[in-house]
Design a protein around this nucleic acid. Structure first.
Length: 332
DNA sequence: AAGACGGGGTG
DNA sequence: CACCCAGTCTT
């Protein structure tokens, strides 16, 4: 691979990079936060969370002092809540031990919620370590550059490592590991997109073996969605609604209305609260990546006192409460 | 190697 | 609707 690839991409990046809140940031905590937010999440979705989160938890210490519930409240609606739980846990681990964020990718990798991508991102952008970030963008850009239909993770990682190693031989101000990683990802996010890539505007098209059939590289992933029938029970009284803390991996740490999976869902819910009937309100559909939920919503009067605004809730639970709210208003 | 894990954008 | 997103952790 000619080293002009590096020059072409870095020059393009210098002139075309988007202005993002964490761009040019050198504080490792802020970079880590941005990278955690960006895991499987689009830039536009992450930005408001980044701003609000930093306002509330400006550094590792303030985050460590906070309750998990407050941290999840700041994360609510952003999805993949294990990210927030892990970030909080990581802050507590380090602060309790009197340590700052480690500066090597190997040490970062050992922390909860930090995998190969995030470790490389923080190490390269905050500390200048020459380690390659491999994310969905890099995988796609390299797949097209080398016309790989089914790239193996190993193949992608090794190639990204090689390109980073070649960068280290360059001497310009722009030729930093952080810039290189971000340039590759920025190209994937804005030019070498999954659908309708802008090959005509691509700075590395001269080096690209896949530009005539960009949509073939890499081949699309298959994923199946299971349909699930569920029942949710909204218990409400004058003082509020009944919410419970969700345990386990699904929406863990967030609060929500009682919900069960069919068959027998309604019966179990009624039994749990000693009720003999509830009023059907309507249905809510909600998709996860691997689930299609169809939720029948019921309501019943109950001595309940939670205020949903004061608890971290998922979009799913907000949707359910919203439905009950609008139906109730129509009765007035 | 496969699933699980949220929510939203795009074609 | 299908696929993807600056991934990570658990089977």
């Amino acid at each position: 691979m000619p080293s002009n690839l590096h020059k072409a991409l870095l020059t393009w990046y210098q002139h075309h990079k988007r202005k993002l809140p964490w761009r040019g940031e050198s504080d490792a905590y802020r970079i880590l936060l941005s990278e955690m937010l960006l895991q499987q999440t689009r830039v536009e979705q992450a930005i408001p969370y980044y701003q609000r989160f930093l306002q509330q938890f400006p550094n590792l210490e303030t985050l460590a002092q906070a309750s998990q519930e407050d941290v999840l409240k700041a994360w609510q609606g952003c999805g993949y809540y294990a990210r927030a739980r892990n970030l909080h846990k990581l802050a507590q681990q380090l602060v309790f031990a009197g340590q700052a964020l480690p500066c090597s990718s190997v040490e970062l990798l050992a922390l909860p919620g930090i995998g190969p991508y995030t470790a490389a991102a923080v190490a390269s952008m905050a500390f200048g370590e020459p380690v390659a970030t491999v994310d969905g963008n890099v995988r796609r850009v390299l797949s097209r550059l080398f016309a790989w239909e089914k790239p193996s993770p190993k193949q992608v990682q090794e190639t990204a490592d090689t390109l980073m190693a070649q960068l280290v031989n360059r001497r310009g101000d722009r030729d930093t590991p952080g810039n290189w990683n971000q340039a590759l990802m920025e190209l994937g996010a804005t030019v070498c997109t999954p659908k309708n890539p802008s090959c005509g505007a691509c700075p590395v098209a001269p080096f690209c073996q896949g530009k005539n059939h960009p949509e073939r590289y890499p081949a699309a992933q298959k994923r199946l969605q299971k349909s699930l029938e569920m029942v949710a029970l909204v218990l409400q009284g004058p003082a509020g609604v009944h919410l419970e803390l969700r345990q386990g991996p699904v929406l863990g740490g967030l609060w929500g209305v009682p919900m069960e999976e069919d068959p027998g869902a309604l019966e179990r819910l009624l039994a749990r609260f000693g009720l003999d009937k509830a009023e059907p309100v309507g249905a809510v559909r909600h998709d996860f990546t691997h689930r299609k939920l169809n939720i029948q919503v019921y309501k019943a009067p109950y001595e309940a006192k939670e205020n949903p605004r004061q608890r971290p809730l998922s979009r799913l639970d907000r949707k359910i409460l919203k439905l009950v709210e609008t139906k109730s208003l129509r009765l007035l």
